[in-house]
Design a protein around this nucleic acid. Structure first.
Lengths: 182, 182
DNA sequence: AAGTTCTGTTTAATATCATAGACATGCGGG
DNA sequence: CCCGCATGTCTATGATATTAAACAGAACTT
């Protein structure tokens, strides 16, 4: 991973198709400063870097998290979904083969009786989803709710959570998680 | 989200049970500097902050990613979706009011003829989606494809892109983007 | 070819940061 | 009570970052 601020900044700037002057103008700094940073001739203060990134806009966290080397620029579509389980819960992962994905986008199908288990899941990041069909019982922390078509959820993945299909029909959900756990 | 370096640094230092002087010694900086940073009286250079974090040790990415206030623990669900447009394209955003979200999760409905416009959209981050019903023509960079139910896409948002519903039925998509643009 | 407009780079003056060391406070033991 | 040793804060000085403006090259117009 390139931890060099200069390379990262240049990469993100170019990804946005901006010139040094354009970015500088948006960010409210001088073009010279951007030049110096990108040449690695100065180490900007956090305040300055934040100001620069505000011009994109991009947050500091994303800036340091991202991998400037990979912008595969690819367009993954249709049939590339991948089956991950054939049991009660079936998952199809979008863009599974894409290196350095920042999200996991899933098509989940819960058969009647399906359950992610009583040892509640917990991991870093955030996740959310929208119910497409059927009904699902979602437990997050101390809260439990039954969601139907069109309903949605969103929570920090660190909070223990569990999904159960207690109905007779299968339940379809489309969900996303960042950072990707799959 | 607390984007204040001072609060974050103090939080992580205390989490590690270190005094300003201890941390300063490990990091190879002066205690005074840590004091000034934690008081918010200076904005350290990225180089200096990195040096300080090396004493823990912790990476810049973690530092800015972590939530010093720790886990708001909220569980957004169901009816909290928000209508963003009533025209040809209608959007419902999950957890719209959640501060510091890391993703935008959307339920999008394209009426027949709906089009995101010929000035192609372009912004930072990554996005993906799965088609729930109907058909949609997706153009990303130089590629164009028509996607139907179950099909999916995933790409870097920096690449210009466009969505058009050229059919007679409406098209439903569930999509996610990080970082959130809405 | 001269003019215009874009690109990124460089420089001298200024603003900000980082240091070393002094300073004040608090706590526990002799 | 006073000493030793922690804690975090403050200040003067030197180092570094930032600015504004000049500079040089490439592409395009006239």
């Amino acid at each position: 991973m390139v931890n060099d601020v200069s390379a990262r900044l240049k990469a993100v700037r170019l990804m946005h198709g901006l010139s040094q002057r354009e970015l500088a103008k948006r960010a409210g700094v001088t073009n010279g400063m951007i030049s110096l940073i990108e040449q690695g001739r100065v180490s900007p203060s956090v305040a300055s870097l934040k100001k620069v990134l505000d011009g994109l806009p991009m947050q500091l966290a994303e800036f340091f998290t991202m991998d400037p080397a990979s912008t595969p620029q690819v367009f993954y579509a249709s049939k590339e979904l991948v089956e991950l389980g054939k049991d009660a819960v079936s998952l199809r992962l979008v863009a599974a083969h894409r290196p350095g994905r920042r999200m996991a986008l899933l098509h989940e199908v819960y058969a009647p009786g399906a359950d992610t288990g009583s040892e509640m899941l917990s991991h870093a990041g955030e996740e959310g989803g929208i119910v497409v069909s059927g009904r699902i019982e979602v437990t997050v922390g101390a809260q439990t709710q039954v969601l139907g078509p069109g309903d949605a959820y969103y929570f920090s993945s660190g909070v223990p959570h569990r999904f159960r299909n207690r109905g007779r029909e299968r339940c379809e959900i489309i969900s996303a998680a960042t950072p990707p756990t799959l």
